[in-house]
Amino acid sequence: MIERSPVFNIFTYAAMTLGLLVVLVPFWIVIVAGSQSLQEVSRVPIVLWPSSHLWENIQAAWARADLGPKMINSLIVASGVTFGKIVLASISAFAIVFFDFRARMVCFWMIFITLMLPLEVRIVPTYAIAANALLPFQVVLDTLGITGLVQTLSSVRIGLEWNLLNSYTGLILPLVATATGTFLYRQFFMTIPDELIEASKMDGASPVRFFFDVLLPLSRTNMLALATIMFVSSWNQYLWPLLITTDRTNYGTVVMQLKALIPTQNGTPDWNVTMAGALIIMLPPLLIVALMQRWFVRGLITRDK
């Protein structure tokens, strides 16, 4: 940079340190409060230095919110969404970018319009579909008269039903059904030079071979970025799991359990346990972001722009 004056440098460091405080203070308070005993955490003003009860508090939170099975559920959902998204996004982007077929642009727009409306704004009807994911097909069959036809012919009434409530499929599929990853892959595939396809065609490679032997290895960074983004966002989902799981004991995720950890109005204000719980719940995505930073930052910028 241009101004190398010591005064301006000191000012820069001061400003950056201020920023560091703004970002880190909430983390620090979570760690501090999570490591204190009930007496210590209830003290006003609080001592902003960690104490020695972190492990006990984590155990208490773990037991109170039943975090063991919930962690496994969260892990299943987050990996399921990540994996599903990577597979679907890469193959659908492959079709859109490298194939010439008639409805290509229509498919393209049909998928990309979904970027516009986040799950939260269409939550009520999406919930209704989760009760029976095959409902659209049933309606189509009914309106086309196929149901009636089959019924008169074979006296069997077609009743398509696939309930997604309280299932991993229900937790995962609606989160996979967005265009984020497809867009990221498309942006990347567009940068692949035509010569590469021509060369592989000349060598007699089939499209599938080209996909596996050329495209996938080239898009490894892309995949890491998408994996990080998807893992973090699906781990952190709150509203959707809350709606689709009525059976919290078996299908609840950790983030849903946060509310159960908050001290009640007239109960013991044991914020130390709450904070210890919050700490372990926020840790997995934080670690992933911290470790994968280089890749995910690049991915984020290409995805959203």
Binding site: L88, C107, L117, L173, D194
Partner: peptide
């Protein structure tokens, strides 16, 4: 793109799952 693949079935197989999900969980709701 100048270089394309042409195939009557394959692109539909590739894009099908995504389209299906989008139809069921986006357009229908």
């Amino acid at each position: 793109r100048r270089a394309f693949y042409r195939n009557p079935v394959l692109p539909w197989l590739l894009i099908g799952p995504q389209l299906l999900l989008v139809l069921v969980f986006f357009y229908w709701p």
